[in-house]
């Protein structure tokens, strides 16, 4: 076999380093952010970052149109993005695996109903659901989490369903059932643990996509209303000032791509470690 330029270990290591650093920033936001992300300083509007001509270390990444410190807004924004991405993922995993387990284990009508529903659901983009919900209820963190979580369950249903069907026939499952174990016990103790590695890879990659969707919704104005410091909001505000202050939009974009790329590297690397034969192709 030829040596790969970029093996799974490198990917996982690099991805983990980036993700860990950004999660640390998010958790430590109150202590490491140099300024209050909402404090306006109209004397210091649209200051460029430190590497530009008029930049200074007071505002390392510059300031926005209201003189708010960009670095602090990005650090606080990472909190919301990571929190929304993770919670929505947990919601999607819970709904999706429960339905998939039930459909695969019970079969028959339940299987038909769940799987046809999953097929139909797959055709509906999450942005449409978000548009309906936000049009009626308005934006906000709980709305965002519910919309993204409910939009993304069907991947897990499909995977869990297929795995349940094949695992059900295994001798240890039949043995457990023959010994009088209840169905719920078998699902929880025998089926789910077997699926955990595969599901966690999918979940890792999904968090990245959820964060992208959250920033897109915020950017459209369907996420968290301004002045909330989210990456999508910072980018949307920066878009209005592209001529005079392009760094606002671009630094927010860099923050998003860095985190999502880290998550994607981690997820892809984990997948290759889990299934080296497939990844070798």
């Amino acid at each position: 076999m030829r040596r790969r330029l970029f093996g799974p270990n490198v990917k996982v290591g690099l991805g983990l380093a980036v993700v860990a650093a950004m999660v640390a920033c998010a958790v430590l936001a109150p202590w490491i952010a140099p300024h209050d992300p909402y404090a306006q300083d109209l004397m210091a509007r649209l200051r460029p970052p430190v590497w530009a001509d008029r930049g200074s270390w007071v505002h390392p990444l510059g300031t926005d149109n209201f003189g708010r410190d960009l670095l602090s807004r990005l650090i606080w924004g990472s909190r919301l993005s990571i929190m929304v991405g993770l919670t929505a993922m947990v919601l999607a995993v819970s709904i999706g695996t429960t339905l998939g387990l039930l459909a695969g284990y019970l079969g028959g009508r339940v299987e038909q109903l769940v799987m046809r529903f999953a097929d139909a659901w797959q055709a509906i983009p999450e942005i449409l659901l978000a548009i309906v919900v936000v049009a009626v209820f308005g934006g906000g963190v709980p709305v965002l989490i519910l919309v993204l979580g409910f939009a993304g369950w069907e991947v897990y249903t499909r995977v869990t369903f297929n795995l349940t069907r094949s695992l059900r026939e295994r001798p240890y499952v039949e043995a457990a059932l023959a010994a009088g174990a209840r169905s719920s016990y078998v699902m929880w103790r025998h089926l789910l643990p077997q699926m955990a590695p595969v599901l966690s890879v999918i979940a890792t990659l999904q968090v990245g996509q959820l964060i992208l969707q959250e920033t897109a919704l915020s950017f459209l104005g369907l996420g968290l209303p301004p002045p909330t410091a989210t990456w999508g909001n910072v980018l949307a505000e920066g878009r209005e000032r592209l001529w005079v202050a392009p760094w606002i939009a671009n630094l927010a974009g860099c923050a998003i791509i860095l985190l999502v790329l880290g998550i994607n590297l981690l997820g892809n690397g984990l997948r290759e470690m889990l299934d080296p034969k497939r990844a070798e192709r």
Partner: peptide, 27 residues
């Protein structure tokens, strides 16, 4: 496969998957 063009194309594709499309539009 596993040569430079593959590495570049795959790397570009994974970066593309991580790119917010509205930022690409703005760039």
């Amino acid at each position: 496969r596993d040569r430079l063009p593959d590495f570049l194309l795959t790397a570009l594709a994974v970066t593309g998957q991580s790119m917010p499309s509205f930022w690409l539009g703005i760039l």
